[in-house]
Design a protein around this nucleic acid. Structure first.
Lengths: 240, 240
DNA sequence: AGGCTGTCCATTGTCGACAGTCAACAGCAA
DNA sequence: TTGCTGTTGACTGTCGACAATGGACAGCCT
């Protein structure tokens, strides 16, 4: 057989497929925040057994998209303001560390790959393609983490993508008509990273995430005290 | 029944118990790095079925204590130098963020709780009780993360405790007779945190973790290239 | 009525069995 | 001998069934 043939097909296990599907459904709003994820129901619908579903749910819980009430089962996460803040603080921790690692390495030219994502953000914003915009936003941050050269750091970031996708959508919804503030903010971040000044880069990271989390959590009456919190995931009519 | 009675017994599920046991065994060296963790064997020994064992193994993998070769099964992690570096970079990211959060809040007095751990480190070092010393070390860092006020950050740190415990032991082994360098290092860290200067605190964090990871990875010929890497976990004769 | 206890139902926790895979080995052809 | 192909075990992947649990509700006692 030819040396450079067939692109290594990976037999996606049932659990991966299940996790992917559930993730999708949750982000689509088919499973609204707070709704229960009953193992047997899901298994029946997917025509699998509960085993793979169980493991898939464990994955979603690890990602923060679902929660578990021990003995009661899993349900779609409902995030409180505080939790959203916490998530963004962790992002700030990871991404500012990534910035530090790149800057410390001394090759600021590497940040050039971030421009690609920036351009994509501008392009999709102009087109009004919000789904693509979310992807561009995510890819900018993902790229930064990848640039860190720390595989584990990148994986830690990647594990949050599902949650982040939902949160960015929410942020966009809050923003309303124009996405410009987001673009400006990211342009500024990249510029600060390029300065090569550690302190400025760190500050820029934290500032961006502080702003973002504020934007998302602002203007919702519900709070953690009520136990209800607010939906960290898009609210759509429960389909199916 | 009296209001303040019975201390809320939690029915530790089989999977938690299994995970705990395996974690212990791995750290004890009963399962040496690289050894396979066969579901059926473990289930038979624990007199449970493979289901809970499977989930326990998933937990260990999430913690970094075990790895999976899809379709082949799980085995005890063997860390390469680079991976140890990566782990410590992530610790630096998390803990310097924790420091930032505390300092930003402005109440430097909170760092006082770290003194307790420091004192414990000194005490146990003098006694030569290395197991207790490891715990004191861990509790200092755990306390810092807890002080951050970010529950998720603390959880992220906690998830690494198993791995860290193994790495600290390894570090101590490398150090040899005296633990003084470690104590001095931590005293210095706490002092820098207390300065309330963000940049100094950050630098101190990164410096400590850089030193630590260097100390651990130094002086081992094996490298990632060989695929073998070196044992991130204590190597003891397979007991039982 | 108010509170406690027993029962029922929906779901999760756990189990044992079978099917599917992978690596290693043996056997055959060149 | 060298390289390819079929076979064999040892495990993991998946399944369907049963046991255990927690919550809700009905009924009883006070």
């Amino acid at each position: 057989m030819d040396a450079r043939s067939l692109p290594a097909i990976t037999r996606s296990s049932l659990v991966d497929a299940t996790a992917g599907l559930l993730r999708e459904r949750i982000l689509e709003g088919v499973f609204p925040p707070g709704s229960r994820l009953v193992e047997a129901d899901i298994a029946r619908q997917l025509r699998t057994s509960r085993g793979p579903v169980r493991e898939a749910l464990a994955m979603l819980r690890a990602e923060g998209l679902a929660r578990e009430e021990p003995g009661r089962g899993s349900y779609v996460s409902v995030l409180s303001r505080r939790e959203v803040e916490e998530i963004y603080e962790i992002r700030a921790a990871l991404e500012s560390a990534a910035a530090l690692l790149v800057i410390e390495r001394g090759n600021l030219g590497e940040f050039a790959t971030l421009d690609v994502a920036l351009a994509e953000m501008r392009r999709t914003a102009k087109l009004g393609d919000r789904a693509a915009f979310v992807n561009a936003d995510l890819s900018l941050h993902g790229e930064l983490c990848r640039l860190s050269g720390n595989e584990r750091l990148y994986q830690a970031w990647e594990a949050q993508v599902g949650l982040l996708r939902a949160l960015i959508r929410l942020e966009i919804t809050r923003l309303g008509a124009t996405l410009d503030p987001l673009i400006v903010q990211h342009e500024n971040l990249v510029a600060e990273l390029r300065s090569g000044d550690l302190e400025r880069a760190t500050r820029a990271c934290w500032a961006l995430f502080r702003d973002t989390s504020r934007r998302i959590t602002e203007g919702r009456a519900e709070d953690g005290v009520t136990g209800a919190g607010f939906a960290g995931l898009m609210e759509l009519p429960p389909g199916r």
